[in-house]
Simulated scan of single mutants.
Amino acid sequence: MQHFDVAIIGGGPAGLTAAMALSRSLRRVVVLDSVRPPRNVFAKEVHGIVGLDGVSPGEYRRRAWDDLKKYGMAELHEVTGTDVTPGPEDGFTVTAEDSRPMWARRVLLTAGMVDVHPEIEGFGECWGKTVIHCPLCLGWENRDRTWGVVTGDPEFAATAAAGFSAWSDDVIVLTDGATPAGEWGGAAVVEGKIRRLHHIGGDLRAVELADGTVIDRQTLLWQLDQRPVPLIAHLAEHRGLAMDEDGYVEVDGSFRTSVPGVYAAGDLVTEAQAAVESAAGGSGAAFQIIADTGRPSGPSPVGYPSAAQP
C-alpha cells in the first residue's frame, strides 16, 4: 500500500493549489482527479487568476502539473475516489475505482459539486457562454448586453438590481416560476416558467416562457441547483461528514470538517464559487494541514536538492 502525507480528492484549482503548497513544504501528496468532466468543462477560459487569465481549463491543469512535477512530491491518480476510512494508525485508507487502496495521514476534500442542469431547450448550448453562473467569471465577456438574472430569492434579486450595473444597464429578474414573498429591492421582475432559450450557436437572443411570452435577453446569470459528488454523499451517510442544509460540506474557520483529520475546500464548501476563490481555499487548507501535522513523514525525493544545498 502506498503511503502519503496527504490525499487530495479533486484536481481543480483548490486541489492543485493545495498540492503546490504541500509539495513546497515537503509533504508527499497524491491527487485523485476524477475521470468525470470538471464543472468548468463548458467554459473556454479561466479568469481571475493573475498570470493565467484566459487560459483554458485544460491548459490550466497542464501548467499546474508542470509546476508540481518540478518538486517531485505529488502524484496524479486519474481515478474516482470511493471511500475514506479511518486507520490504520493516525491516518486514513483511501479507496478508488480501479485502483489499489492507499494510506494518507490526512485527507483534503476538493471534489467540487455537480451542477443540476434544467431540462430547458437551448440551455446546454448557451451554458458557459451566455448563460453564466458568476459575474466575476464571465461578466466581462458579457458586458454591455441585456441581462436576466434567474432567481426566486428576493435578496439575490435586490443585489442584481444594483450590483450588476457594472456589466449591464439593463438587468431584469426572471423567477422561473417561483413566487416568493419579500421585497425585490427595486428590481424589474418577470414571473413565469422558462421553457426555451432562443440562441444562435450558444449566443442567447431571447427567453421564452411557458405561456408563450418571449423576452429579449442576451445574457442570463443562472445559479443552478447543485448536489455533492457520490463520494461526498457517501461520506456524509456513512462516515459522519457533516453537511449543511444546502448540501455543502461544513467546515470551521480552518477548513476542518466534522471528521478529525479530514479537511475540505473549494466549491464543495460554499456557494461563492470561482477559480480564484477555490485556489485561495486550497492554499488555506494546505497551510492548516501543515500547522496541524508538524514535520513531514518522509525525506525529500531522491535527487531533489535540500534547502541547505547550493
Rank of each mutant, 00 (worst) to 15 (best):
A236Q: 13
P13F: 08
A161G: 08
D203N: 08
I289C: 02
L268H: 10
R106C: 02
K193D: 07
T80S: 15
R28M: 00
M113C: 03
G294T: 10
V149D: 01
G182M: 15
G87C: 00
M102G: 02
E250C: 15
A104E: 02
T213G: 00
I49Q: 03
T82V: 09
V50K: 02
F287W: 09
C134S: 02
V173H: 06
G202L: 03
T17Y: 06
V79I: 07
A187R: 15
E59S: 13
L136F: 15
T293G: 02
H47N: 06
S258R: 08
D216F: 07
Q218R: 04
P101Q: 05
A242T: 11
L52K: 02
G240V: 09
F287G: 03
L174G: 02
A206C: 03
G298Y: 04
G128Q: 10
V251T: 15
R63P: 00
R100Q: 05
A285Y: 07
W147D: 02
K129G: 03
G11Q: 07
G122Q: 04
G72L: 06
I132Y: 07
V259C: 13
L76F: 08
D203K: 12
N142F: 01
G298F: 05
G81S: 06
F287N: 11
I215V: 05
V46Y: 07
T159Y: 14
G112R: 14
L136T: 09
V249L: 05
A160C: 09
P296S: 07
G298A: 15
A161H: 12
E59Y: 08
V269D: 01
G51K: 08
V114P: 01
D5I: 12
P101T: 04
G185E: 09
A160I: 10
I289A: 03
H238F: 04
D176V: 04
A96S: 06
V114L: 12
L241A: 06
Y71G: 05
L136M: 12
G240R: 10
G87I: 00
H199C: 07
P135C: 01
V173G: 05
P38Y: 13
V251Y: 10
